[in-house]
Nucleic acid binder design. Structure first.
Length: 489
RNA sequence: GGCCUCAUCGUCUAACGGUUAGGACACCAGGUUCUCAUCCUGGAAAUCGGGGUUCGAUUCCCCGUGGGGCUGCCA
């Protein structure tokens, strides 16, 4: 099984494109096949320098690694595989050759109509409320007339000749059978006057020459598929299987657009989303496993994905769930790895973090509390910045901590903590100690722990008191408690 | 306008003739030996409409309605 992803290098990798690439990749991998990357740069106007590198890099970031075709090695675009070249602008001769073949077999013809005439024609057709289609004005040209026009310097396009009296049926993997009447299909331009092919010709020639077994692409291609099927037939080739994936939609259910959404996959990387999260989220937009599982690694997707369970209707690209998926993946990261990933971020603000031996203990306290790595510095700031607690913060109505009780409470907490020796300085021991005091009946747990936590962190919310105390260490904790006590006078 | 296509909670979706129409996110309310977060429990929330077919339709058929895609020498 060979599948491909064939983006145009017009800038960034589109999230919809990423999902299509993902599905394509999954189909290839679960069949022990190959997934290849081809670049469709047949529109010179729209090609952007650097776009290929960008797309490849983003694909890699997402964990999708094409095994054939266009790749980037050491920052340079290279091509690997026996079916190359894989960049369409390097295959112009091929398209010209097959265009010629179609011309000879009578399935294509030259057209000299100017853009102006075509526009007039379409306007006129629309005014008459008929479908805008090429009127075959140039079909009647004799070979001599064609030769003469070319000799005069006119640059024709090559148009495909659609049989008007037959129906073309597509057997789509997702949608089943779809039938198109020839009379409704336009005589598509195959080769442009600049010698470049259009998508339609290039796509068919390449999918055949590159031995593609299944084409997965967006639903926007569904209506041009009969043209492709016809081309395969004219050229005497077996066509691949087709699977038209439902579109990703804006909130108003129109095709996902730049104006309404952030559609550049790389931006999600920049915003701090984990590739696992984006891929997981995208996979579920239009596909479901038939079970209640929601979190999938790429390997699990390869194992479980199936086209039969791909939705027919488009899916609204609603990011709300992405954040939840991101949180799930965030918490799945092994602690040691998590700590090392946030350490450099924290060190930017607090250089002590670079060689903090207890950093992992601190990191453990925020892993469940953050959704993005970049929230870590803020969440850990109280470890590196001395807290400045106030009586207002230390007291808490809900916990029944009155300001006038604070001196006594803090003295109690300090005494309790002093009673815990260095080698016993663990959150479990600390909690037991506090609870033992609570058992005496004077104070409730919250009356001791809230002021303790507030004194240690200086914040209205943070990880728990004893957890923070452990991470801070005995000496630092006692110092902070003493500081808090001192402001109370 | 023409062609193609789609249609279950706000969103992503399950149910392939028989279910109190299920799950997830978001939302709301509780709980989780201290706050925040996590986590747990509960709640509110949907079959576009009309006809058929059938003992029985979310499910099959038809007609509407609504949405979407395409309709370029763009992809």
């Amino acid at each position: 099984m060979r599948t491909r992803f064939a983006p145009s290098p017009t800038g960034f990798l589109h999230v919809g494109g990423l999902r299509t690439a993902l599905y394509s990749y999954l189909v290839a991998k679960q069949n022990k096949g190959k997934f290849l990357l081809r670049i469709e740069d047949t529109d010179q106007e729209r090609s952007v320098p650097g776009a290929i590198e960008n797309i490849v890099n983003t694909l890699h970031w997402a964990g999708i690694h094409p095994e054939e075709g266009v790749m980037v090695k050491n920052g340079v675009v290279v091509q690997e595989g026996s079916h190359g070249p894989y960049i369409q602008s390097e295959r112009l001769e091929l398209y010209r050759k097959y265009g010629e073949e179609l011309l000879k077999s009578g399935n294509a013809y030259h057209c000299f109509c100017s853009p102006e005439r075509l526009e007039r024609m379409r306007n006129d057709q629309q005014a008459r409320k008929v479908a805008p289609m090429y009127d075959r004005h140039c079909l009647s040209l004799t070979p001599e007339q064609v030769k003469e026009k070319i000799a005069n310097g006119e640059r024709p396009v090559l148009r495909m000749k659609i049989p008007r009296d037959e129906a073309v049926a597509l057997d789509d993997e997702i949608r089943g059978t779809v039938v198109f009447q020839g009379i409704t299909i336009d005589d598509q331009v195959l080769l442009k006057s600049d010698g470049f092919p259009t998508y339609h010709l290039a796509n068919v020639v390449d999918d055949h020459l590159m031995d593609i077994d299944m084409v997965l692409r967006g639903e926007e291609w569904l209506s041009s598929t009969p043209k492709h099927l016809l081309l395969f037939r004219y050229l005497g080739w077996k066509h691949p299987r087709y699977a038209h994936v439902p579109l990703l939609l804006n909130k108003d259910r129109t095709k996902l657009s730049k104006r309404q959404n952030d559609v550049a996959a790389e931006h999600y990387r920049e915003k701090g989303y984990l590739p696992e999260a984006l891929v997981n989220f995208l996979a579920l937009l239009g596909w479901n496993p038939g079970t209640t599982q929601e979190i999938f690694s790429l390997d699990e997707l390869i194992e479980q994905f199936s086209l039969e369970r791909v939705q027919k209707a488009g899916a609204v690209f609603d990011l709300t769930k992405l954040d939840w998926v991101q949180g799930q993946w965030m918490r799945k990261i092994p602690l040691a790895e998590f700590a090392e990933r946030i350490r450099p971020l924290v060190a930017v603000k607090f250089s002590q973090a670079s060689n903090d031996r207890d950093f992992e203990t601190k990191a453990a306290l925020v892993q469940e509390r953050i959704t993005f790595f970049n929230e870590a510095p803020e969440m850990l700031s109280f470890f590196y910045d001395k807290p400045k607690p106030t009586p207002v913060l230390l007291a808490n109505e809900k916990q029944k901590v009155k300001q006038e009780d604070l001196p006594e409470i803090l003295d109690t907490v300090i005494a309790l903590c002093e009673g815990v020796p260095e080698k016993e300085w663990k959150k479990e021991t600390l909690l037991e100690t506090v609870k033992a005091k609570v058992g005496e009946g004077t104070w409730k747990l919250g009356q001791l722990l809230w002021p303790m936590r507030a004194a240690l962190t200086g914040l209205p919310y943070s990880p728990g008191a004893v957890e923070v105390a452990e991470a801070l260490g005995r000496e630092e904790s006692l110092e902070r408690l003493a500081t808090a006590r001192s402001i109370l006078g």
